[in-house]
Design a protein around this nucleic acid. Structure first.
Length: 569
RNA sequence: CGGGGCAUGGCGCAGCCUGGUAGCGCACCUGCUUUGGGAGCAGGUUGUCGGGGGUUCGAAUCCCUCUGCCCCGACCA
């Protein structure tokens, strides 16, 4: 492609609303433009990357034995009423009516649509198992779309749904999808990790998320430095400390802490470590009252774990200041686990502390030398905190590390939720009707574009992995407009690259070298060939990989083979 | 949803408080010079000042209203 014929509106200045790296770079590189909140137009360069990812996803899905279909983005309300999700889904589901006042929604996911198809068309166990996928535009009316394409309202997703007569068959396909996703991300050239995930409100038994590793990722994942254990931090179990609770060694005391409320303030004020303190969180209870959650001062509450407790409302909601005052009689900065009029649930690490410091449930006072059993009743003990780096791995092998990731894939063993609700069944060998067992498997295709950038960039711009670069090589003649000889050489090189099947971007705009290099680096073309009169005199051209520290001269005649060799790796 | 903010040329912004008929940088166009890392000089194009209503001799500016967009908030103990 000739650069002069391609719409690549690179930007020196940034629209003010871009926050994360990938969003800024996609705007600056002229890949996308915003049409409305969370809704984007893909420009030629961005679309090429999107299509490359899509192609790899499609190839691997086909290889896995899945069949491609394409369902409508507009879905009738009646199907969603059947599954119960018309009522459940909330405002994220964009609903509207047609001219006949019939209700529809824009599909955020397609379990209902595919289940409707399957219940009509598949009658016998002989047709199963089967896995259907599509690569299609989804719409979720996010409360707060942000980070550009990373969390847009409209996005491109590959979603697949498998149907089975029994659990064993589901597990088999689930494993195939797990392997397929791993292959896809490997082919894309991305560093990733598959982690155990919460099944959330979709339900089902097993679930894995696939995360592209990037320091700017929104999710935190925990993985073992020794074994193969990896889980979303929401899921990772914090084991009970190995050593038992020490015996009480200090008397109970009360100290005045007039201006100290947070853990940091109190620990600094008293000259103790946060690990020797307990923090008390009052949350809404399941029965309409409240419940107290107790954590060691240096630990964070895990909302997912806490919401699973029978005493706690799900989803988790913190009690507000007024509710705390009404229930306990003090402000939230002085809360402690003693004499609480509600269930008290302590994290495993909090339950083994002795001689600890905590709020006195009286404003401006904290207790010291406190001990469970002696000074206050033994609490209910549960795992309610986030794991931290250095915690023992739940599988008993090694210690946990924490990394940041961007969730780009999620696979679920769904079970019979939709098939039961929508009466999707099949006859088995004995002629009995059996509810189909389902799995579902999603990959955020458009999000992968952003994730790839988050993982691969520097101060100059994007650094595309070869597999998804919009063009493999940039052909950059220096001052071509001044040298007919150079123009001929560049045109010839361009033709030879194309003939060799190399996706070349010919920088034929009349720009200064600096502008040219800056453009090419910003848009992240992984390989660059520079042609100049100086080089022609020596029968060389200059090669530089986007990550290379410096350029080097290579023989002009061998340049095409050189590039082909680079790309073959 | 709650709180805050913004809307002026393609992009980034100033002007608004204190009303007098719109300006800067980038981009874009022309010419000359320049030319291996976002050039210089000169000239030029681009505006329903988000929409509607009001106050006023006069509104980008003050008032009302509508719309769009952005930011913060779901871990504070």
């Amino acid at each position: 492609m000739r650069f002069s014929k391609l719409l690549v509106p690179t930007l020196r200045e940034l629209p003010a609303d871009a926050e994360v790296t990938s969003h800024k770079l996609m705007l600056r590189a002229g890949m996308i433009r915003k049409l409305a909140a969370g809704i984007y137009t893909w420009l030629p360069l961005g679309l090429r990357v999107l299509r490359k990812i899509e192609r790899i996803v499609r190839e691997e899905m086909d290889k896995s034995g899945a069949q491609e279909v394409l369902m409508s983005g507009v879905l009738p309300a009646e199907l969603w009423r059947e599954s119960g999700r018309w009522e459940q889904y909330g405002p994220e589901l964009l609903r509207f009516k047609d001219r006949h006042e019939r209700e529809f929604c824009l599909g955020p996911t397609h379990e209902e649509a595919i289940t409707d198809l399957i219940r009509r068309e598949i009658k016998s166990y002989k047709q199963l198992p089967a896995n259907f996928y599509q690569i299609q535009t989804k719409f979720r009316d996010e409360i707060r779309p942000r980070f550009g394409i990373m969390r847009a309202r409209e996005f491109l997703m590959k979603d697949a749904y498998s149907f089975h007569m029994n659990e064993a068959s589901l597990k088999e396909t689930y494993q195939v999808m797990y392997d397929t996703y791993s292959r896809i991300l490997t082919r894309l050239g991305l560093k990733f990790r598959a982690v155990l995930a919460d099944t959330g409100n979709i339900g089902g038994t097993a679930s894995h998320e696939f995360h592209v590793l990037a320091d700017t990722g929104e999710d935190r994942i925990a993985y073992s430095d020794a074994g193969g254990y990896a889980a979303n931090i929401e899921m990772a179990e914090a084991l009970a400390p190995a050593s038992p609770r020490p015996a009480p060694g200090q008397p109970l005391g009360v100290v005045n802490t007039p201006d100290a409320q947070s853990i940091e303030e109190v620990s600094a004020f008293l000259g103790i470590r946060p690990e020797q303190m307990l923090k008390t969180l009052i949350v809404e209870g399941r029965d309409g009252g409240v419940a107290a959650l107790i954590l060691r001062g240096d630990h964070e509450l895990n909302a997912v774990k806490a919401a699973r407790l029978p005493q706690v409302a799900s989803p988790l909601r913190m009690a507000d200041a007024d509710a705390v005052r009404a229930a306990v009689g003090c402000d939230i900065g002085s809360l402690g686990p003693a004499r609480l009029p509600c269930p008290v649930i302590a994290d495993r690490s909090a339950a083994v502390l002795a001689d600890f410091v905590c709020g006195a449930n009286e404003n401006g006072k904290h207790l010291t030398g406190v001990n469970w059993g002696r000074d206050l009743p033994e609490p209910i003990v549960a795992d309610i905190r986030n794991v931290v780096a250095g915690d023992p791995s739940p599988d008993g092998k090694g210690r946990l590390e924490i990394a940041r990731g961007i969730e780009v894939g999620h696979i679920f063993q769904l079970g019979t939720k939709y098939s039961t609700a929508m009466k999707a069944h099949c006859l088995d060998e004995g002629g009995r009707a059996v509810d189909l067992i389902m799995g579902c498997y999603g990959i955020g295709v458009s999000r992968l574009v952003a994730a790839a950038i988050e993982q691969n960039n520097d101060e100059r711009g994007i650094i595309w992995p070869d597999a998804i670069a919009p063009y493999a090589v940039a052909l950059c003649p220096v001052n071509m407009h001044k040298s007919e000889r150079l123009r001929r050489a560049a045109e010839e090189m361009y033709a030879r690259l194309l003939a060799a099947g190399v996706e070349a971007l010919f920088y034929d705009k009349q720009e200064r070298a600096g502008v040219m290099f800056t453009d090419i680096e910003l848009i992240g073309i992984p390989h660059r060939l520079v042609l100049s009169d100086r080089g022609l005199d020596a029968a060389t051209c200059e090669y530089r990989g986007r990550r290379d520290a410096a350029a080097r001269d290579i023989p002009l005649a061998g340049a095409v083979d050189f590039i082909r060799d680079k790309l073959a790796r």
